Computed example of a mutant assay.
Amino acid sequence: MKVSVIGTTGYGGIELLRILHNHPIFQIQSIHSSRGESPIWTEYPHLFDINKQKLEKIDPEKIAMNADLVFFATPSGVSSELAAAFADYDVKVVDLSGDLRLKNQEDYKKWYKQEPAPQSLLDKAVYGLSEWNRENIENAEWISNPGCYSTASLLGLAPIVKENWVVPTSIVIDAKSGTSGAGRKPSRMHMMAEMTENFKIYKVNEHQHIPEIEQQLVDWNKDIKPITFSTHLLPISRGIMATIYVQLGKEKKLTEIHELYQHYYEKAPFVRVRPIGNDPAIKEVAGSNYCDIGIHLDERTGRLTIVSVIDNLMKGAAGQAVQNANIMNGLDEKTGIDFIPMYP
């Protein structure tokens, strides 16, 4: 199956190339960027003599005529325009940006500060949280890949939210990410001198993944109220840890909650529910498509702590995008992404 990648010079795009290089079914037909035509290895020298393809201009008609599947790995605000250009062509699309995630156009304007995609495209795009929307993904032509923070948070919350075991107003998510989550564009905030031996909070109560998380939580449980969500930068390149606090609405034992998580994820090959008392760490999922989840119950307060870790460039972006593409094309979801995490 021929695939094209648009937005190849960003971290999500280059991670896609790493995965697709050894994918047994998806073959890279073309790679595209708005930066002009040059060999990809000049942008990423680690690809020298491995990938000899040249970056090409973005020509929607030409791309659609020569590819079966297109990945958009472009910044938010770009994908919506591209999506409109591809809407009339018979080609499957997986969008890694946030442009097709929010179904309400006014929400997109508020949180992304940009003009939204046409409502027809928003309605057409299936939210690609692989473990929880499989049936719709299997029949989809367009996939909106979830955000990195959203993936870690939603996978951690799903079982207890769907079972209505939480107090609807009590969800607090304290999330931390490596600097690659902000993309490759240079900024003072991400300079080595600024981030080494440092730890920063950012976008307090303003992060664009807030409405995305709330949209899905309410879809699972209409009683869920607005969440408290904070994001921090870690002095590491990649990885996310979401530490989630919820008040239980019903008295439960930790073993009962743990069994619930095991039941919900027993057929999810990339979600590992850790044994009670065993906490996941970012390094233990690095370079892989795994989401590792640990849970703790404070019996004094009735508060549950959920720890969810992912690699933001894999399960939080390119890995999940390929997982979704596998599902929508009738392949085993593990095809081409069944990597053991890197360690150390």
Rank of each mutant, 00 (worst) to 15 (best):
D95N: 08
L129D: 10
D99R: 01
L82K: 03
Y112R: 15
K57V: 15
N66D: 14
S34K: 15
S79N: 14
L82D: 00
H21V: 02
P116Q: 02
D68P: 05
L129Y: 13
Q119C: 03
L69T: 04
I31C: 03
N136S: 14
L82M: 05
N22F: 08
Q53T: 11
I25Y: 11
N66Q: 15
F72I: 02
P60C: 06
I63F: 02
T42K: 13
A87L: 12
H21Q: 04
E138A: 10
V126Q: 03
W142L: 10
Y108P: 14
K110A: 06
K109L: 03
A140E: 01
L122N: 02
N145Y: 09
V126H: 01
Y127H: 09
E135P: 14
N133K: 15
S76A: 08
G147S: 06
E37S: 14
T74M: 00
S144I: 07
E115T: 14
K57T: 14
D88T: 13
E61W: 05
S34T: 13
H32E: 05
S76P: 06
A83V: 10
E37M: 13
A140R: 02
E106A: 10
A85Y: 08
N66H: 11
H23L: 00
S38L: 01
F86T: 09
A84F: 13
H21T: 04
E106S: 11
P75Y: 01
H23C: 01
S80A: 13
E131W: 13
D59W: 07
I50T: 12
Q29W: 10
I50M: 09
D99V: 03
G128M: 12
F26K: 01
P118C: 10
T74V: 01
E81H: 15
Q27S: 13
A83R: 09
S120I: 11
G77N: 05
A67P: 00
D99K: 06
K113D: 12
L55W: 09
L121S: 05
W111K: 13
K54T: 10
D59G: 06
I25E: 11
L121W: 09
